[in-house]
């Protein structure tokens, strides 16, 4: 078990996080994991805990923490937009991990809403050298719609489901949800291109659980164009068959394997120190 230590930190002392320290890893890239949805820093099914501990074992220092007002963190009492707060919080997280480990470069990891937070911070935070977006931004394309709707037009079962859904909605209106609103696609495309131009390395991993949004690896290029999708510093994988939050242990193992392989390729951990004599 690698040592972990809890911290209260941040510009207003309002953030709470857990730093994971591998032995002798000073100088390595630090990995910062952001909240998934509204869940606290432990992550769905303890995903963030397992991920950070595995990365510690590979030699990466980590920080999993709660953004302002989430989990155990408080508010900073600043008058700022959510995006500004996220960027400032990530800046505080970078400062903490740098002070604790000596890291100068950082990789952000986020799932779903966490990927959106990682995107916002990666746009402006100069110490960020890479980002792993788990079910990050993606937009429906013409190709998506053809792949999605054409098979349904020919399926009686799909029509039955469609009418059953409409009937249910008519009887009982759908529950109010607190989904996030995507920025315009052109904005995200431009921001990704700017990140790549700054030298960031980006990894998009899509689960099989967002079939209403993403249904083929080709969609990524359809969505963002060759300039972004074919950039050598960007990689994208679709983990077909999994659900959105990797509920099954085998799905989490699969996702962890992809994340670890990408990190080791793009940001190799320091070689273990060998004792003299």
């Amino acid at each position: 078990m690698m040592p972990e230590r809890a911290f209260r930190f941040g510009r207003a002392g309002h953030l709470v996080g857990m730093v994971g320290l591998p032995t002798g890893a000073h100088g390595a890239v630090g990995v910062i994991v952001l909240n998934t949805g509204l869940m606290h820093r432990v992550g769905p099914f303890r995903l963030h805990v397992d991920m950070t501990r595995r990365l510690n074992a590979l030699g990466y220092p980590t920080l999993r923490f709660d953004l302002s007002t989430m989990g155990d963190s408080g508010a900073s009492a600043e008058a700022a937009s959510r995006e500004q707060q996220v960027r400032a919080d990530v800046g505080d997280a970078v400062a903490l991990l740098r002070a604790q480990t000596g890291c100068t470069r950082f990789v952000l990891v986020g799932l779903c809403r966490g990927a959106q937070s990682a995107h916002a911070a990666a746009c402006t935070e100069p110490a960020v050298a890479g980002a792993i977006f788990l079910d990050g931004y993606i937009y429906r394309t013409t190709g998506f719609k053809l792949r999605h709707y054409l098979p349904r037009l020919l399926s009686p079962a799909r029509w039955h489901g469609f009418f059953a859904r409409k009937l249910r909605q008519a009887v009982a209106p759908e529950e109010v949800t607190f989904g996030s609103v995507y920025p315009p696609k052109e904005q995200v495309r431009g921001e990704l291109a700017a990140m790549l131009a700054r030298g960031l390395k980006l990894y998009f991993v899509y689960s099989g659980g967002i079939g209403e949004q993403f249904n083929h690896p080709r969609q990524f290029r359809e969505c963002y164009g060759r300039e972004v999708a074919d950039h050598p510093a960007l990689r994208m994988d679709l983990l077909d068959g999994t659900d959105h939050t990797y509920t099954l242990v085998c799905d989490r193992e699969r996702m962890f394997g992809h994340v670890e392989r990408w990190l080791k390729e793009q940001f190799p951990p320091p070689a273990p120190r060998v004792a003299a004599g």
Binding site: G208, G209, G211, G241, D243, T247, L248, V249, C250
Partner: peptide, 14 residues
């Protein structure tokens, strides 16, 4: 959750 049902082995022990 899943496009296709997951096997008992994949979901077992959880």
């Amino acid at each position: 959750h899943y496009v296709r049902p997951r096997s008992a082995e994949e979901a077992g022990g959880q």
